[in-house]
């Protein structure tokens, strides 16, 4: 009985042989099925940059709505005031703005009642800011989820746009109530009906800008976390570069073009003109903003599309 230590060599050798035989069979099978259209899905290293798979997103529309619902319910669970916070936030901001910028700093308001002026600014601006900051966290906040299951990643930013829109509509309704009160009291407020009908387009533009910037940032934050801080801070700074707390007419004429580079400027001014009757509604500037929005959305989708395929490896 002679001892001889055997290694796992026999197993390995055997399995190799088996593997090669197997491979030949597979090769044959692959050849048999040559038509790609027989398959319902093909997973490849890179898909084309413009293949956004919007039809797939449409199939997952239930998921988008459930995300919206989740965000609403989860935020105000276990709060006493609940959804009232939607109204308290813009009200408090407006009051503080009225006190600080209106009474202390005495900034001009285009002859509008200060309260309405600031309220229109904050409500409209907060829609853009919400869309932007929340979508920019898409990948970071959902990495746990994205790492375990596939669904069209764009569902998350879209659900954010919708839930922000609902918040906006609630706040905007409050704003309209105040507008009505002020008109009844005889304040110099003159809503412009033809521009009011145009306002959904303005909303769309803001949503587009928020989404575009947001998904660009979120795609980059998978690698560079510092952009998150930049966004939180940057949105605040951007607000001061946008006529939210002052009218563009108060800016010296030779600096106005700098303001108008900012695509949000004309949107906010037009909103004000539509609902309050003072401001700068200029079709040329709006077209510029619209074009800007299209470019940002396009760039954003291309980058997002690129990143979403492999972000799990870098996040």
């Amino acid at each position: 009985m002679l001892g001889r230590r055997q290694s796992c060599f026999t197993v390995q050798k055997f399995s190799r042989r088996k593997y090669f035989k197997m491979d030949a069979v597979v090769e044959q099978k692959i050849k048999m099925i040559t038509h790609d259209r027989d398959w319902s899905m093909i997973i490849e290293p890179q898909r084309s940059l413009l293949d956004l798979r919007l039809s797939e997103l449409w199939r997952y529309r239930d998921l988008v709505m459930l995300f919206v619902r989740r965000d609403f319910i989860a935020v105000y669970k276990q709060t006493i005031l609940g959804p009232l916070w939607f109204l308290i936030q813009p009200l408090l901001t407006t009051i503080i703005f009225t006190v600080i910028f209106g009474n202390f700093a005495k900034l001009p308001t285009d002859g509008l009642p200060q309260f309405l002026f600031y309220m229109s600014g904050t409500v409209v601006w907060s829609y853009f800011a919400d869309c932007f900051t929340k979508t920019s966290d898409t990948f970071i906040n959902n990495s746990q989820l994205f790492g375990k299951v596939y669904f069209p990643r764009l569902a998350v930013p879209f659900s954010i746009l919708i839930s922000s829109l609902i918040t906006f509509l609630i706040q905007f309704a409050l704003f309209l109530v105040f507008v009505a009160c002020f008109i009844l009291r005889g304040s110099p407020v003159h809503p412009n009906w033809s521009w009011i009908l145009f306002s959904p387009v303005l909303l769309l533009m803001m949503a587009g800008l928020g989404l575009g910037f947001g998904i660009i940032i979120s795609s980059l934050t998978t690698k560079y976390r510092d952009l998150r801080f930049l966004v939180q801070f940057g949105v605040q700074l951007l607000m001061y570069a946008t006529p939210v707390i002052y009218p563009i007419s108060s800016v010296p004429a030779r600096f106005q073009w700098i303001m108008l580079v900012n695509p949000m400027t004309s949107i906010i001014e037009t909103f004000r003109y539509a609902f309050l009757g003072a401001g700068d509604a200029n079709v040329g500037n709006l077209l510029y903003s619209f074009g800007f929005m299209l470019v940002v959305v396009f760039l954003g989708s291309v980058i997002f599309n690129r990143v979403e395929q492999t972000f799990m490896d870098t996040v």
Binding site: D36, S40, I42, P45, F146, Q309
Partner: peptide, 21 residues
């Protein structure tokens, strides 16, 4: 890769039917 959470480096997978992972 099969459940499309991350993309392969090379090669491909063809699938017939809905995949749930």
């Amino acid at each position: 890769i099969l459940s499309r959470i991350t993309a392969p480096t090379s090669g491909k997978i063809k699938v017939k039917g809905r995949v749930a992972s």
